[in-house]
């Protein structure tokens, strides 16, 4: 790791102000992805701003028909929230125990790893991401590989998940890394059925054909015959693009079965 400065601001406003510093400042939440990037010198920030304990980012509350989760809530803490069982189950399936105890919701979303689990629930439920300066719909947030709509210095404060009538998540987990080779989140929400896929492309994406089919008939059978073109899917030593395309159909059907 290259040397850097470190501060722990008292509130979100101070954190954002600190990010205006010269050089290359960067927020640090749980650090479960960032520490690895620092060691490899893929990231060489001049300043780390610790946002893990900011009170505004640590709260969980019910607000109308939504559950609002602070950005610095850990995956382990999300795994015991009861408002949306599929969301808790997803959080409890991330990485391993130690990673879940440190890693945070906001850190995962801001990093936007192509195989991040939390992004699937955010897009699948049509959640809203609130930052220090605006609200961003999930459909507008995830732009590409490790790329989001966040501006320089913009800090995720919390995520508002609308309560679905039913939702489910299924993934094929890479046994070594724990990341999903393909993960599919299916939800029936007030705005219709949503299907979000992680692990398969540059970042999480929706499947309009699958959504329409499930909107007509909410069952795994309704997906029979549907396929996903493999052209733009990831291919690596773990899986070919064709295999990932196949897995999307399998995981989508399993996610539907798991919908409570």
């Amino acid at each position: 790791m290259m040397p850097f400065d470190f501060i722990r601001p008292a509130n979100a406003a101070e954190a954002v102000a600190a990010h205006g510093a010269e050089g290359e400042p960067r927020y640090l939440a749980g650090g479960q992805s960032l520490l690895g990037a620092l060691k490899l010198r893929l990231a060489q920030p001049s300043l780390l701003i610790d946002v893990a304990r900011l009170p505004e980012l640590r709260a969980v509350r019910r607000q109308g028909d939504a559950v609002v989760v602070g950005a610095s809530v850990t995956h382990a803490e999300m795994a015991v929230l009861t408002d949306i069982p599929a969301l808790a189950e997803l959080a409890g399936s991330i990485g391993d125990l130690q990673v879940r105890n440190m890693g945070t919701l906001g850190g995962s979303l801001a990093n936007n790893d192509p195989a991040g689990d939390p992004a699937a629930a955010v897009l699948g439920l049509g959640a809203t991401i609130r930052t220090d300066r605006r609200e961003i719909a999930a459909d507008d947030f995830f732009l590409g590989m490790f790329e989001t709509a966040l501006e320089p210095g913009e800090l995720i404060v919390e995520v508002s998940y609308p309560l679905p009538s039913r939702a489910g998540y299924a993934k094929l987990r890479n046994p070594a890394s724990g990341y999903p080779v393909v993960g599919v989140f299916v939800a029936e929400t007030a705005s219709g059925v949503r299907v979000a896929v992680t692990g398969a492309g540059a970042c999480v994406f929706r499947l309009p054909d699958f959504e329409r089919a499930l909107g007509r008939e909410f069952s795994g059978k309704a997906l029979a015959g549907l396929s996903v073109p493999s052209d733009d899917l990831n291919r690596d030593l773990h899986a070919t693009a064709e295999y990932r395309a196949h897995l999307i159909g399998v995981m989508a059907a399993r996610a539907v079965e798991r919908c409570g």
Partner: peptide
């Protein structure tokens, strides 16, 4: 030293974490 093996696991406020994936200053 890459967060894979868990041999460095300690507890931080009662929960298991990998001490090679945490800065000492995070434990302040």
């Amino acid at each position: 030293d890459t967060g894979q093996c868990g041999a460095c696991t300690v507890h931080l406020d009662g929960r298991a974490v990998k001490s090679c994936l945490i800065l000492a200053v995070q434990a302040e």
